[in-house]
Design a protein around this nucleic acid. Sequence first.
RNA 1: CGGGGCGUGGCGCAGCGGUAGCGCACCUGGUUUGGGACCAGGGGGUCCCCGGUUCAAAUCCGGGCGCCCCGACCA
Length: 481
Amino acid sequence: MAKASSKQITPKSEDFDRWYVDVIRRAELADYTPVAGCMVIRPYGFALWENTQRALDDMIKRTGHQNMQFPLFIPESLLVKEAEHVEGFAPEVAWVTQGGSEQLHERLAVRPTSETIICELYRKWIHSWRDLPVLINQWANVVRWEKRTRLFLRTTEFWWQEGHTFHETWEQARDEVDTMLGCYRELAEEWLAMPVIAGRKTASEKFAGAEYTLSIEAMMSDGWALQTGTSHHLGQNFTRAYDISYSGRDNTLLFPFQTSWGLSTRIIGGVIMAHGDDAGLILPPRVAPVQVIVVPIAQSGDAGGPVEEAAVRLEREAPSGVRLRVDRRDGIRPGEKYADWELRGVPLRVVVGARDLAEGRVTVVRRVDGEQQQLPLEGVAARLPGMLDEAQAAIRARAQRLLDERSVEVTDLDGLRQAFEVQPVFASGPFCDSPECELAVKQAVHALTVRVLRADRRPDGAPCLGCGRPADHVALFARAY
RNA sequence: CGGGGCGUGGCGCAGCGGUAGCGCACCUGGUUUGGGACCAGGGGGUCCCCGGUUCAAAUCCGGGCGCCCCGACCA
């Protein structure tokens, strides 16, 4: 039976943006704050981020990097040394001009990213080819002054990791950039169940100061693209500007090649939009703060009875590593508990009630598709890890199906136009990567962007869909957040 | 930065000259519990701010401030 509308969230199909905000606030992932454009990540949302963080941090360490921490502030003189970089970030930098009651002699930027200060410090520390490679990472918050913000996707302050490395050769930096993009792909696909398309950004979309930028792009369930991780080959642009030089193997003075790569809390927005439905979040088990919710169906006067006994048994028998919780809240009926945990995206629900218990069974319901089964209480706890793996796979498969269904091939601008007439899609087609053709694409379909030049596809001599000259790439075209 | 809209308990709104109300949420007690319960009681608001008009302003007038939505720019 339909309840008062205030208990429900806006249906996705009715208004995707409102659905998105409703889900985040009702599931208590995050909220607005008194600070314009800045959000607060609430415990449930932060637990989701922490699980994501842990998975990525392990990969960062496994690939040989170490964590460290740099200052929040960057002196103006430092920030401006790399021309393209400053120009790119200038409109988004927040400045500190006063400390206590005293005017500062030099403005301090609140870091929008840390390349510049890291270069300044490593200038002191890199002297020899033996000091290379430098492989470091920091988890930090950064500030980019945004005119228009959206929870998780674009806020003035956000949280991320930024990796920074220095290498002897261009090729080593290239390999690093590839490796880390691979980690991001693994995180997105294996942990967050979001299939992604990887590739290189066009000149207009690359990081300010980079030689080139790679990214992974995921499809949200409305067909829009979300860039969920980026990896930049910085060449020697910064190391020359910041005068990081070292003595090489042949005793000549050299500039190292540099990379940087980042993944932010934005990816949480991706998880929400990629998987969620009208009932709320659908979280992949590997990162879900609560993986299994046990709902006891209490009967009046049976405190300590068989229902509670079964709940306790599940708690005790759940294999370590399974994040299981029993919802013992009093005064809330089971239906409301179901709705509540569905909203929060918990992958599995175990319903423990007298009726099933009389036959020695419990009911297990999977969030992603509502699939329901009665299983013997005996041994059910041991089966949870397997069921969680299946749920993870089901979420991934569902996202893959969406991506497949809404991907199209195009060969000319007309085809591109037609592809977007019905609904937003991921369109792929031969592309020459000239600024003129990029503009032509943007004009052909409103708000359309070149997401990436796909790493997994070759044009095989097909003509560019913009100019007709032989294309060097297959580009992914989509509307993007 | 251009166009539009809105500021009234925590949230969503109504009231548009006579001193503030509804739904949800919240608190207490009880009955309930296999899909968002019910009954009874209760707490909570300088009606965004400043000024003006009036016997009387949430309501009318002037000026601020804040926020949201739609467009141009962006992880």
